[in-house]
Nucleic acid binder design. Structure first.
Lengths: 208, 208, 208, 208
DNA sequence: TATGAATGAGCATTCATTCAT
DNA sequence: GATGAATGAATGCTCATTCAT
């Protein structure tokens, strides 16, 4: 109530940002732990320590918050994917191709540890929600494009003819296997599956 | 249809079966068109032309109906998968391996046309619902086992060392690519993607 | 289906009675264990191993079954109450009055063990249901009348002037204390409460 | 009522309180008139003139509202019971003991007029609901303790040996008789029953 | 922007009862 | 009498969203 203190200053500006950040944080926690459909906006607000109404000051609805989370999540993923591919040397002699592929897989697995539970929820919505579906496709395409851009220059040393299709298939195979390793662990040994994946991709791309 | 049995017997049975069948049919339609979460048991009953309560005479809840649908769906899928793999000749000369692989893929694509929208909903629940998750894993494992059983006898002509892991990875890659071709069509040409998939799997399994 | 056996005989006649008996038995069990409001007629039929519809062949509704149970329960109670009071000698010298009273209380406690949980449910309905309320009043009055009839001949040796009112008050006090001892055990020692009750009643009825 | 505080502050508070008060009022009316089991939260909300959801903003469920009502009801009862016993002089000469007892009974009867129908519903739940059962026991114990505390100092002038047991039995007898007089009126004359009760209690506690 | 009570349509589910066989 | 599927109104409760302050 007293405004005479200097502290009255910053808050006025920052308060909004802080509220938003808290909502994002709370949403991430709840969506991950309870799932999208079992999390209400009221719960999120409570978890964030703000009023219910504040939620709607910052997000049109529950879905917008998850889209925001997805955006943040994907931003960090893609930064690392790009970096990852930048380092890979697809033009190295075939004998090194295997190493490159294995390294990419290893890193891709690491990426999925950022927020696996949230990823799981978003994956589900990819199937049932038009908007998330479209987003998923775009993101997938981005990965494919990145890979393609890196493979392209070495097209002549690679074994595949239809490079765009190959890139897509490779990305899909990788995503699928990594997904299963992440979410349904404990079947075949993780190591063995990733080895098999590496072999498959390597043999597909490179002469033997 | 047979009327030779004492009356008052069959009809009772029949009416119940008919109600159940109608509910199953209505559920399939609504889950496919509106999605699981947007379909209420009341709607299903109305669509089936029966009373709300009748729904609960036949299914404990909404989820049980979807599990039933999944069961029916999967039964038909697996019958065809088994048949499909039974016909494939994995011991044929390598030159024919490509044909075998392409044929399997072609048929697998056909399978996904049985009820793609329903499949989509079930896939989503695989991520968020414990029970569907477990079910999905089992079904996946069944496909893997079927493939493995077919590959096993020809282990020496195949190129892979860890056959179980290979089978799993191959099934996952196939499912992923076919999925994408089904649900998000129109990117690369479908034909090109399936060709790429075929190449990848073929080169992985067979000597070149 | 085969009618040639002698067994076709009895059942025809007895089946109805047996169904009814089973329903009564199942109702008793469920009302006692789950409570009246949480027990549905469907459950009772299932527990009895008969069809839902059979319930309504024998009882107009759920309430009628409980009334029937109450009737059976009360019949057995009252038979014993009458017997009990018949044995008591209220004309004995005052020094023996105490013994008489204690004996009555002891027996009354025993009565409540017939089916305490069912009794509990019926007691509750006594408050909320018009019909059970009226029934409860009648039953209470019967106890009062029985006691009164036994006290009456010895009115001159008793200390009370308004014998009908005294009988009612005594019955009520006894019921209340016994009730509490039955349903909410473990406060004061049961023995001590019943002693106190005995003292109170004795001093009230007899000269000291 | 005071308007000197910043606006936008109090009203929010006030409106909520008013809604809650209305729900409490409506609940009291409906539980009393229709009974607990025949009253739905929807009905209560409608009667209170608020939305269904508002009910659940204020009470977890129907039962919590009745517990709240019970709390309010009991608070007023116990305040008066305490006051009542405080005034009684149990150490007065025996000749006055009768007057004291009669006065207590007279007042206790008055207490039951606060909301007899609600009391009736709560009494019923005391038998069938664990939580209300426990509550009832506590409240009963409080009455017993109050009486005991008042009797204790005069233990030597009283006739009973086991004072705690006596207090409990006396409270139970009083509650039972008053109950019957309240809820099932019209048997013996009310006056005669209360006289009898008074005699019984007096003779039990005091030398003659 | 923040607040949080209010809203009311909607949902899953139950249940007493009916009725055709 | 017996059967058990069918009925549909009713219940307890949730939730996305609004809005007055």
């Amino acid at each position: 109530m007293a405004d005479e203190q200097p502290r009255g200053y910053l808050p006025k500006q920052r308060r909004s940002e802080r509220t938003r950040a808290r909502l994002v944080e709370a949403g991430k926690r709840l969506f991950s732990e309870e799932g999208y459909h079992r999390t209400s906006s009221k719960k999120i607000a409570r978890e964030a320590g703000v009023a219910t109404g504040s939620f709607y000051n910052h997000f049109r609805d529950k879905k917008q918050l998850l889209l925001e989370l997805n955006r943040l999540y994907m931003a960090s993923i893609h930064a690392r994917v790009a970096e990852l591919l930048a380092q890979a040397d697809f033009g190295a002699p075939a004998s090194d191709g295997r190493t490159v592929v294995r390294e990419i897989i290893r890193q891709a697995v690491a990426l999925h540890n950022l927020s696996p539970e949230l990823h799981r929820e978003i994956s589900a919505l990819t199937y049932t929600d038009e908007e998330f579906g479209e987003l998923g496709r775009q993101e997938h395409q981005r990965s494919v494009d990145l890979l393609l851009a890196r493979l392209q220059p070495h097209a002549h040393t690679l074994r595949v003819r239809d490079l765009p299709a190959a890139a897509k298939v490779v990305v899909q195979a990788m995503e699928a296997v990594i997904h299963s390793v992440r979410f349904f662990p404990g079947g075949e040994d993780e190591e063995r599956l990733l080895d098999a994946l590496g072999d498959m991709v390597f043999r597909y791309l490179y002469e033997d």
